[in-house]
Design a binder for these strands. Structure first.
Length: 276
DNA sequence: ACCCTCACCTGCACGC
DNA sequence: TGCGTGCAGGTGAGGG
């Protein structure tokens, strides 16, 4: 599920659902979700805290508390939040339960158990390992064409791999990296340092377009109305131009979309539209 | 410093 | 039906 746009949707939904609530108590049911704290420490750091705001840095969710701490959450592959009343039964893979003062429970579910939570002092937020190395927000002015060109010039990796590196370009995952490269009409195998100025410009525009389109829910967004998934906070499904479309015709030229493995991950591309 | 590979998990689709 | 295989949108440890 979650690359930057999906995380942004989760953040917006969470903000509406839990801002102003107080955390009465917390149940950490699977220790590896919060590896830096015991269940008791985790509960203690959050007990009684008022949720002031919910925000995002890259794919990290920041739940800001009034006790000078921030609950950092990364959904990784399958993490989800769901809001339940006190008498609804817990879904499967419910690993963390936050009991709120409105008699609801905010539940973190994660089938693959890859998701992570950490409570950080607000004063240490900027220097915390998870956040300190991240590239600039891709939709902010800091992610300028000049920044991207500098990053490209310094790297001899393939573009696809570079785009997945959160310390270089923030927010893309396997899907949006493929989609951005398709939009920019550049091969995922192109060597970063050899990308021309014009292609760098196209890539810069494509990254911003693919992310903002997904966030603002342009024509390609359709909300999944299925009962089960719509109860999860911030869930949606989309139409992809190349991702998971192996063998189907390219939306630009009709050539069959190809899939190959690059760095151990699937890469989808049009071999005609995306020449180096 | 940089970059690659693999491990971390469960579930699901597929072929035999 | 049942079993084995491969694959899944993310990261970070470990090693070259």
């Amino acid at each position: 599920m979650p690359e930057l746009p999906e995380v942004e949707h989760v953040v917006r939904a969470l903000r509406g659902a839990i801002t102003g609530r107080r955390i009465v108590t917390t149940e950490l049911r699977l220790a590896r979700i919060a590896p830096d704290a015991s269940a008791a420490q985790f509960r203690r750091k959050l007990r009684g805290a008022l949720i002031k705001n919910v925000s995002r840095r890259g794919k990290y969710i920041l739940i800001e508390l009034d006790n000078d701490r921030v609950l950092l959450t990364h959904l990784r592959m399958t993490g989800k939040f769901v809001s339940l009343t006190i008498d609804q039964i817990l879904p499967s893979h419910a690993h963390v339960v936050f009991y709120l003062d409105d008699d609801r429970r905010l539940v973190f579910c994660d089938m693959r158990q890859f998701g992570r939570m950490i409570v950080v002092a607000k004063s240490k937020l900027a220097t915390t390992r998870q956040l300190s190395e991240l590239a600039p927000e891709p939709l902010s002015d800091d992610f300028s064409l000049e920044y991207l060109r500098a990053i490209l010039a310094r790297s001899h990796r393939s573009l696809k791999q570079l785009l997945l590196d959160q310390t270089k370009v923030l927010g893309l995952g396997n899907i949006y990296a493929a989609e951005a490269l398709f939009l920019a009409r550049i091969s995922p195998f192109a060597v970063a340092s050899k990308v021309s100025k014009q292609r760098a410009l196209r890539l810069h525009e494509a990254i911003r377009k693919i992310l903002s389109e997904a966030i603002e829910g342009g024509s390609t967004l359709r909300i999944d109305l299925q009962e089960e998934t719509s109860s999860y906070i911030g869930t949606s499904e989309r139409f992809w131009r190349v991702y998971e479309r192996e063998g189907e015709p390219c939306v630009r030229c009709g050539t069959r979309i190809r899939r190959t493995v690059q760095g151990g991950r699937s890469t989808y591309f049009c071999s005609r539209c995306q020449r180096t």
